[in-house]
Amino acid sequence: MRIVFTAKGTEWDSDMDPRFGRTQYLLIYDDKTDDLVSFDNREIDKEAHGAGTKTSQRLFDLNPDVLITGNGPGGNAQSILERTKVEIYTGAGEMTVREAYEAFKNSKLPKY
């Protein structure tokens, strides 16, 4: 299973980024290989419009099974993500990435 986190850094101990569209990084964890890789999304700051759709396009291209984030996607992003197979879990905006993963495994995060 491949899980994407919205995060403010590139490590397990980095804080989660509560925002979806304007998240600074996307961290991709593969629980089969135990690899954690990061995608630098900071270019999104230059986008005046459509940050949510742009990050959704990235997420679609990454093709994960699960997205763990804070606030959840906005309307435009939602209309894209609902066409993908990704399951979205929210409420992890105040956690570290590690804490968010533990919370997800223990079914503590609400499904969006």
């Binding site: 986008e47 419009h49 459509g50 940050a51 759709t53 742009k54 959704s56 396009q57 679609f60 435009n76 209309s79 894209i80 066409r83 993908t84």
Partner: peptide
């Protein structure tokens, strides 16, 4: 320039509210 178009595999999706 407005991220009003996304490509989902073989499908193009236009987001009218972002289109200028």
């Amino acid at each position: 320039n407005f991220n009003a178009i996304v490509q989902l595999g073989p499908r193009i999706l236009v987001l009218p509210e972002l289109c200028h």
